[in-house]
Write a protein that binds this DNA or RNA. Structure first.
Length: 576
DNA sequence: GCCGTTTTCGGCCCGACTGTTTTCAGTCG
């Protein structure tokens, strides 16, 4: 059983217990355990084999025993018993917006409803409106909620949400009496997928701002509208929330709207221990005196801890680190001196080597590696050994034209083939400046087989880097099912670089593995995999992912000056 | 059910919004 499967079980348990009406703190414990399993960079199964389950945060005796039972037997007696009391299908009904455990239980008790279809039929037959606490409006809202659920497209890749958010930010910044506008929520935290867009605006006259926001032609419906908050659904199905607060509250409001929820809970607990109550409006002391914070830094400062960069705010130890002055100095975009994974028209890129190089110079880069696809990837016009040799001449030519401003490296993004072999022989690899090996094909092989392929690539001394490790595509394709313990151990042993691919559809390494890799001393690279010049812009998403992984400048080789990079590559036997 | 630079027992964030209500419950983030 994977961490994800275990997490799903605990989430189901929490849902059913909540419908049953259990004390909320048990439920929160199960939810917390589920979340921590998802952000765990190791397989719980491996930790179980070491007998250390209770070292997982949020996992105590009771939950450890349940994990143990599931890993041993594949079943969970506790859940089976629970499902006899509360039908498991009720958890699906909870997914309907504005329906929580109380309402679900009410419909189940009173009308025997155990599925969304039954709920829809009951609402259409006007059977819900008469129930206690219900009315016509609530019944209609449930029907709308079921509709919305079917419209909803799930979480959006970061890059897509980013573009939409930028449009909204620009729109809001153009309104009168708006002094500041920031994206908040998971977008500001640079999560790989975004559920809805959260925006915070500062204004002393909120009403017209929210009116303008809600009246845009791309707004399909307004889901909620109060004095500080407006929620809308765009025509695309994406939802967005706008908060408007006076500028003097902007710091607390931004902190609140950025989340994550768990980070905020931690921060509010900390506030209580310091004699404050923290809300989006203010820090309130015991006398009821409100301290306003216009800036976010001030919120953290008054709590006596360092400001926590948004990318870290996931309750993964950042509040404790901030207390102890042990926050990492996260990598920044300005630290990056080059891109080590790009394509040209020699394979499936849309720009020539000359154009890519010119763009890199324009951005002030010192290094650019051209790493076109290798011969077996026919669909991407992969390079035969002969064409690879010809390409070397063109790279030399362009290098001569641009002179010393930019170091142009001749590399490859070489296939790790389905049978585990590599796509060029060693003597060809030895003639290149830099070698990336990547999985593209047969990624659904079983764990052992696909892991062996990657290990084989890592163990080849000519392979300098593994590109987009799992080859996942957000949102439609899960990555290869790799044994990360083995992969990371091998990369550490061979001093092989692991790429954080910055393309927002990839973001691969994932943040949690980037963090573990960096902690193990494994070198990382943040590359865009650009297929056209403007795609060098994607770097920001790779930086965001690296920062979510607590990655610092010294962990990343494309922060190196060209001389240092060349010397390291030469030590590995590269031709550069 | 978990957890501990005040605790191994007694805590476990805070407010907005909506709809049903004559003062609050449920849901959400």
């Amino acid at each position: 059983m994977t961490n994800k499967e275990l997490a799903e079980i605990f989430t189901l348990i929490a849902d059913l217990m909540q419908i049953k009406g259990e004390v909320i703190y048990k439920i929160l414990a199960y939810r917390k355990a589920a979340e921590n399993l998802l952000s765990l960079p190791r397989a719980a199964k491996d930790i179980w084999e070491e007998g250390k389950l209770e070292e997982i945060p949020g996992v105590g005796k009771a939950i450890a025993e349940k994990i143990d039972e599931m890993l041993r037997t594949g079943k969970l007696n506790f859940l089976e018993k629970l499902a006899e009391e509360v039908p498991a299908s009720l958890a699906g009904v909870l997914a309907v917006p504005d329906l929580g455990p109380k309402k679900v239980k009410l419909f189940w008790d009173q009308l025997g409803i155990t599925s969304i279809d039954e709920l829809k039929a009951a609402a259409q037959e006007d059977k819900l409106a008469g129930l206690p606490g219900m009315g016509k409006k609530s019944q209609d809202k449930i029907l709308e909620g079921i509709e919305a659920l079917s419209r909803r497209s799930g979480r959006l890749p970061l890059g897509d949400a980013w573009e939409l958010a930028q449009e909204q930010l620009a729109f809001l910044r153009g309104l009168p009496n708006v002094s500041q506008v920031e994206a908040a929520g998971s977008l500001r935290r640079m999560r790989s997928t975004i559920g809805d867009i959260d925006i915070l605006a500062a204004s002393d006259d909120p009403e017209p701002v929210m009116e303008a926001f809600a009246s845009q032609p791309e707004v399909a419906r307004v889901e909620g509208r109060g004095s500080t908050k407006t929620s809308v659904e765009f025509n695309s199905g994406l939802r967005a929330q706008l908060w408007v607060h006076p500028i003097k509250k902007f710091g607390t409001a931004l902190q609140y709207a950025t989340g994550s929820k768990d980070h905020n809970v931690k921060l509010r607990e900390l506030a209580l221990s310091k004699g404050y109550s923290l809300s989006e409006h203010a820090l309130t002391d015991k006398d009821g005196t409100e301290l306003f914070c216009a800036g976010e830094q001030e919120v953290y400062q008054r709590l006596g801890i360092a400001w926590v960069p948004p990318e870290l705010r996931e309750d993964r130890g950042e509040v404790e680190a901030a207390k102890n002055g042990e926050l990492p100095r996260l990598i920044e975009q300005g630290d990056i001196l080059g891109d080590l994974h790009t394509h040209s028209t020699w394979s499936d890129g849309k720009a020539t080597i000359r154009e890519m190089a010119a763009e890199a110079v324009k951005r002030g880069y010192r290094v650019l590696a051209i790493t076109d696809h290798s011969q077996s990837l026919g669909i991407a016009n992969g390079l035969s050994i002969e064409r690879l040799a010809q390409q070397k001449k063109e790279i030399a030519l362009v290098q001569e034209e641009i002179g010393g401003r930019l170091l142009l490296l001749h590399g490859t993004e070489m296939e790790i083939k389905a049978d585990g072999s590599l796509d060029y022989p060693d003597e060809v690899l030895a003639g290149l400046d830099i070698v990336i090996a990547s999985l593209h094909v047969s990624i659904r092989q079983d764990r052992q087989q696909v892991t062996e392929r990657v290990l084989n690539a890592i163990h080849n001394p000519h392979v300098d880097m593994i590109g987009h490790l799992t080859n996942r595509l957000i949102p439609e394709r899960e990555g290869a099912d790799l044994d990360m313990d083995k992969v990371l151990a091998a990369a550490a042993e061979m001093d092989t670089v692991l790429e954080i691919n910055a393309n927002p559809r990839r973001l691969d390494l994932e943040d949690i593995y980037a963090r573990r890799a960096a902690a193990m001393g494994i070198k990382l690279a943040i590359n865009t995999d650009a297929h056209r010049p403007e795609q060098l812009d994607l770097l920001q998403f790779g930086i965001g992912t690296a920062r979510r992984g607590w990655v610092q400048k010294e962990d990343v080789i494309n922060t190196w000056e060209p001389e240092k990079l060349v010397s390291w590559l030469q030590k590995r036997g590269a031709a550069v």
